[in-house]
C-alpha cells in the first residue's frame, strides 16, 4: 500500500516537473513546479519523514506564489494566451538532460543499495530536534547566519538606491531589433537616460 502511494506520488512529481517546461504560461509553470514539490513532500510524509515533508510543502507553496507574482510583474506572456517556447541550445540541453537521467539511473540500477528502513517506533522528529540543537548545532546556526547574509544581499541587490547612485542610472533597454531603438520603459529623470535617442552603437 505504501509502495503504491509512493510510486504514484513520484510519478506525479516527475510529470508535473516535466509540465513546468511544457505549459504556455509562466504562472502555470510555477504552479506545476509547486505541485511537483508538494508531491515530493508527500513522499517524505509517507516515508516517515513528516517534519521535512510538511516543511517542504509550506516553503514551496510560499516560494512558488512569490515566483508567480514575479512572473506577472516582470515577464512577458504570464497569462499563457500565446504558445510559449523560449529556449536556446535546445538539442544540447535535451541531450544533457537525457544523459544525466540515463547516467544516474544506470548508477542506481547497478549499485548495491542499502536496506535499513526506519522502524515505526523510532521518534524521528524528536531525534531531528536533538540533532539540530545538539551535535549539529554549529551546522544549523551556520545555515541561519547564511540566511541572514542572504537577506542582506537580497535587499542590497534589489534596492533602487545603489551605493553609487541610482541602480538604474544609465539604464538602456535592449533594442527590439539589432542596434534599433530601445524597447520597453525608458527610465524618467534621475535615470540618466534622456528623451532623445542615441542611435545604435
Amino acid at each position: 500500500m505504501v509502495n503504491v502511494v509512493v510510486i504514484a506520488l513520484i510519478l506525479f512529481a516527475v510529470w508535473t516537473g516535466w509540465r513546468v517546461f511544457r505549459v504556455d504560461s509562466m504562472v502555470r509553470a510555477s504552479f506545476s513546479l509547486m505541485l511537483s514539490f508538494i508531491a515530493v513532500g508527500g513522499v517524505g510524509v509517507v516515508l516517515s519523514m513528516p517534519y521535512i515533508g510538511v516543511a517542504t510543502v509550506f516553503m514551496m507553496a510560499v516560494e512558488m506564489m512569490a515566483m508567480a507574482i514575479f512572473m506577472v510583474a516582470f515577464m512577458m506572456n504570464p497569462a499563457g494566451l500565446n504558445p510559449m517556447m523560449m529556449v536556446h541550445q535546445h538539442k544540447f540541453s535535451v541531450g544533457a538532460g537525457v544523459l544525466a537521467w540515463l547516467g544516474l539511473s544506470t548508477a542506481v540500477l547497478s549499485a548495491e543499495l542499502p536496506s535499513a528502513p526506519v522502524t515505526s517506533e523510532q521518534r524521528v522528529v524528536f531525534d531531528l530536534g536533538i540533532e539540530l540543537l545538539g551535535p549539529s548545532m554549529l551546522i544549523f546556526e551556520t545555515a541561519g547566519v547564511t540566511l541572514l547574509a542572504t537577506m542582506v544581499g537580497a535587499v542590497i541587490l534589489s534596492s533602487r538606491e545603489g551605493r553609487y547612485g541610482h541602480a538604474d542610472h544609465g539604464s538602456r533597454p535592449p533594442g527590439l531589433a539589432e542596434g534599433g531603438d530601445p524597447a520597453g520603459r525608458v527610465p524618467d529623470e534621475g535615470g540618466g537616460h534622456h528623451h532623445h535617442h542615441h542611435g545604435g552603437h
Binding site: 509502495n3 509512493v6 510510486i7 513520484i10 510519478l11 512529481a13 516527475v14 516537473g17 516535466w18 513546468v20 517546461f21 511537483s36 513522499v43 516515508l47 529556449v87 536556446h88 541550445q89 535546445h90 544540447f92 540541453s93 535535451v94 544533457a96 538532460g97 537525457v98 544523459l99 544525466a100 537521467w101 540515463l102 544516474l104 539511473s105 548508477a107 542506481v108 540500477l109 543499495l113
Partner: peptide, 19 residues
C-alpha cells in the same frame, strides 16, 4: 524507485536550466 524518480527530476531540471 525513489532514486529513479529523483534521477528523472534531476535530468528534467538540467534540461530546463540549460535550455
Amino acid at each position: 524507485i525513489v532514486l529513479l524518480g529523483a534521477s528523472a527530476l534531476i535530468g528534467i531540471g538540467l534540461y530546463g536550466a540549460l535550455s
